[in-house]
Write a protein that binds this DNA or RNA. Structure first.
Lengths: 180, 180
DNA sequence: TAGCCAGCGGACAGTAATGTCCGAGGTCGT
DNA sequence: ACGACCTCGGACATTACTGTCCGCTGGCTA
C-alpha cells in the first residue's frame, strides 16, 4: 500500500493511524506470516514505530485487532442454527487460506490469545455436540480432537507455499474429515 | 553434557570435535528445537564457533549429520519385507517424539534436505503400494497424501509442549490413521 | 490569530544470532 | 629435540528486529 498523503498530526490522525496499522498488519501477516517484523508493519502503514507501539504495545494486541473480525464472523455464523460443524470448519479453512496467521493465533500458546482460542473452541464444542447427535461425526471425537485437527492444519499450512495453499488445504481437510 | 578434558589441538582432535558437535546438536535440536542457535551448539560441545563452522558450513550440514542415523534406521526397517506402512509410520513417530526436529527436517523446504526427504518418501511409496494391495489403506491415498500426513504431524507436534508429546502424537496418529 | 500540547516520526539503544578471522598452541615428521 | 603446520577457540563484524525516547508539528481552543 502506498504511503497516502494525510493529515498526520493532531488527535484526528490517531484513529486513521490505528486503522492503517491494522490494515498493514493484516496484509503483512497474510503474506509474510505471523512473524512479520513490526517495524515492517509501521513502514507499510506509513507510520512511525512510536505510533505503532503506542497503539499496540505488543504483537498480541495487534493480532487481536487484526483478527477480531474473523472471530466475530465465526461467532455470527455459529449463531445460525442451520450451521453445522462442517460449515464452521469450512469457514475457518477459508480464513486460514486468506491468512495462515489466523490459525497461528488460534493455536498460539501465548497467554493473550487464550481468550480468542476459548471463543473459537466454544463455538466448535457446541457444534460438535450437535454433530454427534446427528451422527455426523464419530462417537469418540472430543473437542480436544477438534483442536488437534486445527493444530495439524495450521502447522502444515504454515509451511505450504502460498500458491498451493488452497489446494493443499482442501485435500488436507478431505483427509482429516474422514478422521472425525 | 559436561565439557570433557581432551586433547583439543591437532588433527586427532578433529574427529572428536566433530562427534561432540553432532551429539550436542542432537541434544539441542531435541530440547530447544531445530532452530537452536548454532552458537549454543558450539558452546554445549565445548568447541569454538570456528570449529563448528569449519566442520559444518551451515545448519543443513549439521542436521544431515545428526539425522543420518534416523534415516538409515528407517531404511533398514523398510528393507524387512514384513514391515508394513503402519510399522514405518510408527517408527517415524517414535523418532519424532524423541526429537521433533526430525520431521522438521523431512518437511523442510530447504534444498539441502531434499535428498533426505526423497529417501524417506521412497520408503513410504513402496510400503504404500504394498498396503494398497493388502487393502490396508483406502484406494485413493497417494504418496503425496502421506507427506501431507507427515507435514500435519510435524507442524502440530512442533507446537506441543515436550511433556505432552507422546500422548498427543499417539492421539493424532489414531485420528490420521483413519484418514488413510 | 496565537500559543498550547496531543500525538507523530524516526533515531537509537538493547538484544540476539550468524558467520569470519586470526593469534595461540598442540602434534607430528624429521 | 625442534620447528612447521594445522586446527582450535573465541572475539568480532554484521545483520536484523524490538521497544523507547524525545524534539517537532500543526490542529484546536480561546
Amino acid at each position: 500500500m502506498a504511503h497516502v498523503r494525510k493529515a498526520n498530526r493532531g488527535p484526528s490522525a490517531a484513529a486513521a493511524n490505528r486503522a492503517a496499522l491494522v490494515t498493514a498488519a493484516r496484509e503483512l501477516f497474510a503474506t509474510t506470516g505471523f512473524d512479520a517484523p513490526l517495524s515492517a508493519v509501521a513502514r507499510r502503514a506509513g507510520v512511525g514505530q512510536g505510533s505503532l507501539y503506542r497503539h499496540f504495545p505488543d504483537r498480541a494486541s495487534l493480532a487481536l485487532a487484526v483478527f477480531e473480525g474473523n472471530v466475530a464472523e465465526l461467532e455470527s455464523l455459529a449463531a445460525e442454527p442451520a450451521t453445522t460443524l462442517d460449515d464452521l470448519f469450512a469457514r475457518i479453512i477459508e480464513q486460514t487460506v486468506a491468512s495462515v496467521a489466523f490459525l497461528d493465533m488460534v493455536t498460539s500458546a501465548d497467554e493473550r490469545m487464550a481468550a480468542v482460542r476459548h471463543r473459537v473452541t466454544g463455538l466448535l464444542a457446541a457444534k460438535l455436540d450437535q454433530a454427534r447427535r446427528d451422527g455426523a461425526v464419530r462417537a469418540d471425537v472430543t473437542t480436544g480432537d477438534l483442536l488437534l485437527v486445527i493444530g495439524m492444519l495450521a502447522g502444515m499450512l504454515k509451511r505450504t507455499p502460498a500458491t498451493d495453499l488452497a489446494a493443499v488445504a482442501a485435500r488436507a481437510w478431505t483427509l482429516l474429515r474422514r478422521a472425525i
